[in-house]
Design a protein around this nucleic acid. Structure first.
Lengths: 168, 168
DNA sequence: TTAGATGCAAAGTATTTGCACTACC
DNA sequence: GGTAGTGCAAATACTTTGCATCTAA
């Protein structure tokens, strides 16, 4: 996404009106690498502009997306996320906590071909699903605990008299 | 996705039951390159099994997806699509008619790295947005018509007396 | 016999729409 | 002054859940 001033210029050039709501939304979005949903953005901005409606946020975001100023995508969690970085890049999506980050190194080719399989290409979204560092720790701990429980259960099964039935 | 027989074996191995509904759903999915949604699949199968419920279709599909037998993704239209081809490949998504096709040549790297930016990778989805051949024709025709109308309007504006006001 | 699967209805969640009002250009 | 934007409420669309029943193993 471009700097806010430029975005506003382009909004006007498109025949749009510069309202306080849009300026606020643009500003909030410009420096945001968290790939927010409309609802998240709305929650954050409501503190600054209490009457800001969710409808307005959706309208502004969809308008920007149609103008090609930001990218819409769904990570599979059923919600639509907005990414102000329109350069080709992959998103890292945590399958456990749903966090989304930009992939550090350009993954896949940096320039997208003009045509693929008869299609005239206009954009590209790449999602890499995985476990974020925090969730790796959590999952590994859980796995270890599961393995322990399974081992205990197996030991018990192999000597049933000591466990289920008591000493005969 | 694997052949239907193998899928069924693996379902049993997982502790699942081989019901007529699941067999039907597996069969329908196996040869389907159209990336159907649960609802589309349900509509198609209802002719064969009138009492088949949408709930059951969702259950079967989500079960398969969790077992890694097919891939879930959202193309951005807000619906979840299911792809029986689990090999890494890109999807071509038409931005006008929402049609989805598999990209012919492997786009991006064929093998996905084990780790990216601290994440432990488990899967990948690549969507290439563009215009399908049919929609290219439609859009180009519309553009040509628009250009014609614009030219006509401009000609009229440059000689206002011949158009709006009549002679003098 | 029993745990998984089914199917109906209902709930939940995300996004869009209709419409009157407001305010930017 | 006209048009795009705003905000509320209601509508829509998609998916999941609760629960009674059924059935494959």
């Amino acid at each position: 996404m471009r700097p806010v001033e430029e975005l506003i210029e382009r909004l006007q050039a498109r025949g749009g009106k510069v309202t306080p709501q849009r300026v606020l939304i643009y500003r909030a979005l410009a420096g945001d690498a968290s790939h927010p949903t409309a609802e998240q953005l709305h929650a954050r901005l409501r503190g600054l502009l209490p009457h800001l409606s969710l409808t307005t946020v959706y309208a502004a975001l969809n308008d920007l997306a149609e103008a090609g100023e930001l990218r819409r995508f769904s990570s599979g969690d059923g919600q639509v996320h907005y990414d102000p970085d329109t350069r080709p890049h992959a998103e890292l999506v945590c399958v456990r906590c749903a966090r989304i980050e930009d992939a550090p190194a350009p993954h896949g080719q940096a320039v997208l071909p003009e045509r693929v399989g008869g299609f005239r290409v206009v954009g590209r979204t790449e999602l890499i699903h995985g476990l974020c560092p925090e969730c790796q720790v959590a999952v590994d701990a859980q796995d270890a605990q599961d393995a322990l429980a399974a081992a205990a259960l197996e030991a018990e099964t192999q000597r049933p008299e000591t466990a289920a039935g008591g000493s005969r």
